[in-house]
């Protein structure tokens, strides 16, 4: 594997010991990249969609907490 970037490899592979568990979930038919919280709920990190209208939906905005039962 070759990484082609102006950043130094130390910057790319620097490990901050961030053990947050991140995973892809499907919510209301949309794919979301989420961080799992200690209580089992998910916090949205990134919305994976190409439809610009999805980004106007406040329920899908980053930082929103989704309870485990809705996933």
């Amino acid at each position: 594997m070759i990484i082609y970037t102006p950043l130094s490899m130390e910057d790319v592979f620097y490990n901050a010991n961030n053990n947050a568990e991140r995973q892809m979930i499907s919510y209301n038919g949309k794919s979301l990249y989420c961080e799992k919280k200690a209580d089992g709920s998910f916090e949205i990190v990134q919305l994976l969609s190409t439809d610009p209208q999805d980004f106007l939906n406040h329920q899908l905005s980053p930082g929103t907490i989704i309870s485990q039962t809705n996933v």
Partner: peptide, 8 residues
């Protein structure tokens, strides 16, 4: 900022 050649 760039990244993996094959993926890009």
């Amino acid at each position: 900022v760039g990244g993996d050649v094959e993926a890009g």
